[in-house]
Amino acid sequence: MTVNLGKDLTGLEHLTPEQIRLILDTAEPFKEVSERPIKKVPALRGKTIVNLFFEASTRTRISFEFAEKRLSADTVNVAATGSSVSKGETLVDTAKNLEAMRIDMVVIRHPSSGAAGFLGQRIRSNVINAGDGKHEHPTQALLDLLTIRDKHGKIAGLKVCLVGDVLHSRVARSNIWGLTKLGAQVAVCGPYTLMPRGIEELGVQFFPRIEEAIEWADVLNILRLQLERMEKGFIPSLREYYRVWGVTPERLERSPRAITIMHPGPMNRGVEIDSRVADGPHSVILDQVTNGVAVRMAVLYLLAGGRPELADAAKRGGGAE
């Protein structure tokens, strides 16, 4: 039985568990590639990939760039600024230009929710969502899933709690899809002002207090709290946020089990996460970064090229020639 990913990766909401597992399984051998002295394989040789980032991002863009280069693809970085007046128009123009240049794949980050799907519908190139508005950030969730699986050996049945500004977080949304599809129990924790409506209908529990989350969880995925949340009036101050919801060693000590600590980065030390926790023995934050490159390599590899009518040639999986 073959599992296909389709042309684009716009999010995890509409992927099947099998498709998600395929990506995670494919990422494993790519981890090994990043350990070699020559961190390159020719799998995407000659492919042109554009990193189209309408929002500033250093770490995600670099991670994708490494993934692309390690697959021997040719990469181009475009830092476009989306004009607030004609965002939609700009995207359509961009799509047409990319198509005219015969780009093979586009990795897009855009401040509008749905932008990746919008682009994917208009060009023949593969489109990979590197974060669209508040909608999804699928590769982040995939690397989070891989990191959890590496640490715990499984995902089904694990209790994973996302802590922080879930309302504005595309990372949280993608994680909720991925975790629930793979059978984890999911919860969210934070101020009521930063929780999206209807979250319980997705099968997600809510804890108003971090102490309750810590008592329940096997894994805490701590989301970054942005300064503008305070400015827009969702919380009174970063200081109060730390005092009420900060993940500190003292609070973690009260848990009956060792809780795996995750964070998509970049961290606000002393706001959502205490430094001692980020640097502590149960933190897998750096593993997340390592896995990020492998997961992105897997996604690029799985989406690139391939004419399904020749699928039979691959049936025996190597060795027949």
Partner: peptide, 17 residues
Amino acid sequence: SVGQRGEKLAEFGEMVG
């Protein structure tokens, strides 16, 4: 709100504490 100016939330947690 801070100063009762109706702009920015006061620190409810700290005050309750």
